[in-house]
Design a protein around this nucleic acid. Structure first.
Length: 389
DNA sequence: TGTAGGATAAACACAG
DNA sequence: ACTGTGTTTATCCTAC
């Protein structure tokens, strides 16, 4: 992933995507990190301080964007969290909200999301009930959750289509049965590459070194793409995201290790086990490894990029994907997915992995200045201090 | 400095 | 004819 580029929406002619907004309403994205969970934290203070000191929207950081856009736009399927804030939530929340001027918020909404188009597409598709969307709905989802694009320079839709076509993580599904009116096909995520996209999400680079508060109690069910995004709000180094994410999963989802993975079901972002795809950081971060190595030759090097958001297909592959359907994977595809997941799951003993990840991630969080509301932080701090001695 | 990943633009074909 | 969709190519930028 590249840097976060804060573009000037008015630098070019704007699109008129308003009509697409209606798509989003029907999908009930319950995303959702209750904004309160975040606003009450040291992060909130940190963010606020920074935003107030940095001034212009051009200096809005990813974290600002994350906080002010994502955390408020998403509503994760976590109603309990919304109705009953965690102990971490206190009056600081309102303080933060009031201190963040509406103008600033408006500006930050216009800042470009720190996610590649591939990840945006992935999130859109994954949040759809059928795990497949037409391009138009993908537009709509992006517009709904990333208002930046409503005023973004024209061409982002082209980029979306470009990604769909070239990124082999996405596959086209012909609208054959019960053909819905409208053009085009449905697009879905190739199960084979879903873990890699998840890795890409976790790898999402967040520069800066702001602290952030992690809600203390995440219901496992709340682990959705949005949750990912929140976790990524931790200003971990890119190479540390995995460990930190895993650590938080381990702490927030008891029984994770014993939770036998339903290998027959599609990998679901709401399932923590679908996220913790590997215990080896090197392996984890080698997003282009394993299943992506078969990227065949292409006309240009850029067309053979192996990152999850750039797994461009050889023409033959796409040609052969016409029959693909997300709801009815072929045995071969299902087996492939199953094989990958099984391999990843048995990479290391869960308990060993647990301890290693917790320790490593705790240290990383500490180094990154992450103030974590988890009990884990106490343990890791203790370990750190112990280590220092 | 080279490479890779990602974004953007543009052109073109095709279908509704 | 227009619009939306899908594909392809090229170029630029940035991080590593």
């Amino acid at each position: 992933m590249g840097p976060i580029i804060v573009m000037s929406p008015d630098s070019k002619k704007a699109e008129t995507p308003g009509a697409l907004m209606e798509h989003s309403a029907q999908r009930g994205v319950c995303g959702t990190l209750p904004e309160a969970e975040c606003a009450s934290s040291p992060l909130a203070t940190s963010l606020d301080d920074r935003s107030s000191s940095s001034g212009g929207d051009e200096e809005l950081t990813n974290l600002n964007w994350l906080h002010e856009n994502l955390l408020q736009n998403f509503t994760l399927g976590c109603p309990e969290a919304q109705s009953s804030p965690t102990p971490l939530l206190n009056e600081t929340n309102s303080t933060l909200l009031s201190s963040s001027t509406s103008a600033h918020r408006v500006e930050s909404v216009k800042s470009k999301p720190p996610f590649s188009f591939s990840l945006l597409i992935y999130m859109a598709i994954e949040e759809s009930p059928t795990k497949s969307l037409p391009v138009k709905d993908i537009y709509g989802w992006i517009l709904e959750h990333f208002p930046y694009f409503s005023s973004a320079p024209a061409g982002w839709k082209n980029s979306v289509r470009h990604n769909l076509s070239l990124n082999k993580c996405f596959r086209k599904v012909e609208r054959s049965l019960g053909k819905v009116n409208g053009k085009g096909s449905l697009w879905c995520v190739d199960p084979e590459y879903r873990p890699s996209l998840i890795q890409a999400l976790k790898k999402q680079h967040f520069p800066s070194s702001h602290s952030i508060c992690l809600p203390s109690a995440f219901p496992a069910s709340a682990f959705s793409p949005s949750r990912h995004l929140f976790l990524q709000g931790c200003s971990l180094k890119e190479s540390d995201i995995d460990a930190a994410t895993a650590m938080m999963l381990l702490n927030s989802t008891p029984g994770l290790q014993t939770d036998s993975c339903d290998l027959d079901s599609p990998m679901d972002l709401s399932r923590p086990d679908s996220v913790l795809v590997s215990s080896d950081p090197k392996q984890d971060h080698n997003y282009s490894s394993s299943s992506f190595q078969h990227c065949s030759s292409s006309s240009s090097s850029s067309l053979c990029s192996l990152d999850g958001s750039g797994c461009y297909p050889a023409p033959a592959r796409r040609a052969g994907s016409e029959g693909f359907h997300s709801d009815d994977d072929s045995d071969e595809e299902r087996n492939t997915n199953l094989h990958v997941r099984q391999h990843l799951l048995k990479t290391k003993h869960p308990r060993q992995e647990d301890e290693e990840l917790q320790e490593a991630a705790g240290s990383l969080l500490h180094l990154a200045g992450v103030h974590c509301g988890l009990d884990l932080s106490k343990r890791t701090n203790y370990k750190l201090e112990k280590h220092r001695k």
